Amino acid sequence: MDLDKIISRPNIEKTMFTEWMTANQLHEEARSLTYAQFPTKWTWHAKEKEWRKRRGGKKTIGRIYYAQPTSGEKYYLRMLLNTVKGCRSYEEIRTVDGVVHPTYKSACYALGLLNDDKEGDNCIKEASHWASAPQMRQLFCTILLFCEVTDPMEEL
């Protein structure tokens, strides 16, 4: 497919993520949910590229794409999206106690998500729900090699 055709598609800039922020701007009740919780109360309509309030009582699980701890700011953005609620802009995602932090990592520190070894602990706990044993071992080694671990002998 021709790249120019792809770029010129209508609403190409709209994604589930950007429209989550738009829904938070437009609907007060949307602001009480994290990005991962959002699908429990709202449904994504791909054709129109918009979120709509869920009518039925179907059980739904929200998922966020996995990001490895070594992926830098993507990883910290993902951590924040599991924590912060109702953000209407990228700046609001990085805002903690009225202070807009320059990076997602610094916002994670301000929220206390990176103190001690919480970052690695949270990563391993989350991966334990879906990762195989070899993947868990690889993740553990990656954390030890590339992340700042203060006490690697501490029990998780």
Rank of each mutant, 00 (worst) to 15 (best):
D2Y: 08
D4I: 11
K5G: 05
I6G: 02
I7Q: 09
E13L: 12
K14G: 04
F17Q: 01
F17C: 00
F17V: 01
T18F: 03
E19F: 00
N24Q: 03
N24M: 02
L26E: 10
H27I: 08
E28M: 11
E29N: 09
A30F: 00
R31A: 04
L33S: 04
T34L: 06
Q37A: 09
F38K: 02
F38P: 00
F38S: 01
K41I: 02
T43R: 02
T43Y: 05
W44L: 03
W44G: 00
K47G: 14
E48S: 14
E48N: 14
W51Y: 02
R52T: 01
R52H: 07
R52S: 01
K53R: 15
K53Q: 10
R55E: 12
G56F: 04
G56L: 07
T60H: 07
I64W: 01
Y66H: 15
A67P: 04
A67S: 15
P69E: 09
P69H: 08
P69W: 03
S71M: 14
E73H: 05
R78S: 08
N82P: 06
T83I: 06
T83F: 05
V84P: 00
V84A: 04
C87V: 10
E91N: 13
E91S: 13
R94D: 00
G98C: 08
V99D: 05
V100W: 02
V100N: 01
P102D: 11
S106T: 13
S106K: 13
S106Y: 05
Y109N: 10
A110K: 06
A110G: 09
G112Y: 07
D117F: 02
K118S: 12
E119R: 06
E119D: 14
G120Y: 00
G120H: 02
K125Y: 11
E126C: 10
A127I: 08
A127C: 14
H129E: 11
W130G: 13
W130S: 15
A131M: 12
A133C: 12
A133F: 15
A133E: 15
Q135A: 14
Q135Y: 09
Q135K: 15
M136I: 14
M136H: 13
M136Y: 13
Q138S: 13
F140P: 00
T142P: 02
I143V: 11
L144P: 00
L145A: 12
D151L: 03
D151V: 03
M153R: 10
E154M: 10
E154V: 06
